[in-house]
Design a protein around this nucleic acid. Structure first.
Lengths: 103, 103
DNA sequence: TGGCCATATGCCTGATCTGACATGTCGTTG
DNA sequence: CAACGACATGTCAGATCAGGCATATGGCCA
């Protein structure tokens, strides 16, 4: 990743749709980012639904508020791995995960 | 991870179902492993469907035969991240991914 | 049996990720 | 405006992962 950084800035605000050809991202790269964004979105959604602050949720899932903030923005320093593990520890099921990934 | 290693031995042969309480795995841990196994399975499936050897596919997706072998076994040194990226670069869509994760 | 091919495993090195702290921004409220 | 709470961002040490070489194992067939 790296080109993804420039992309991220634009992606803010959760403009859901097509990341696509913003700047020479291959189809695979943008799909990968979209998956991350989808997972990040689910995380925010779940936290809000439970009306928790980032700090509180962070404590519950054993990470820091700052990392959680990065997860919610699909920061480039956050892997799909971390997102999946964190979602699961918030009680999400793999069906929940599949659902958001399925667009 | 770590407990997961012992688990892996049993998981071989793709006994799909419940990894569950094999040895003190929390629900989250086993769900995480099941997701990995599902993705790994899809990878094998796709490779076989294209009748490629690990070496050939490895070259195509720019990795090594050994790492690909580990991916197909959901080895503990392989992350969900790598599995997802590799699947995408074999041409899988995120729907394909969602489908297998959804059990 | 020996050679060959496909796959699996061990291991090391460099790359990337994770957690956490410190600090910054923004919005609200007294 | 000052103080506060919630969220965002920069940074870095330590942890984990990725790539790939070397080698091992397991068919298969002459």
């Amino acid at each position: 990743m790296g080109k993804a950084e420039r992309f991220r800035a634009e992606a803010d605000g959760w403009s859901v749709g097509n990341a696509d050809e913003f700047l020479g991202l291959s189809a695979d790269e943008s799909t990968y980012i979209e998956v991350k964004l989808a997972l990040a979105g689910l995380l925010v959604e779940r936290r809000k639904a439970a009306s928790l602050t980032q700090s509180v949720l962070a404590r519950q899932v054993k990470t820091s508020q700052s990392r959680l903030a990065k997860m919610e923005h699909a920061d480039t320093t956050v892997s799909v791995d971390l997102l999946v593990r964190t979602l699961l520890s918030t009680g999400a099921s793999w069906q929940d995960i599949a659902r958001v990934i399925a667009a």
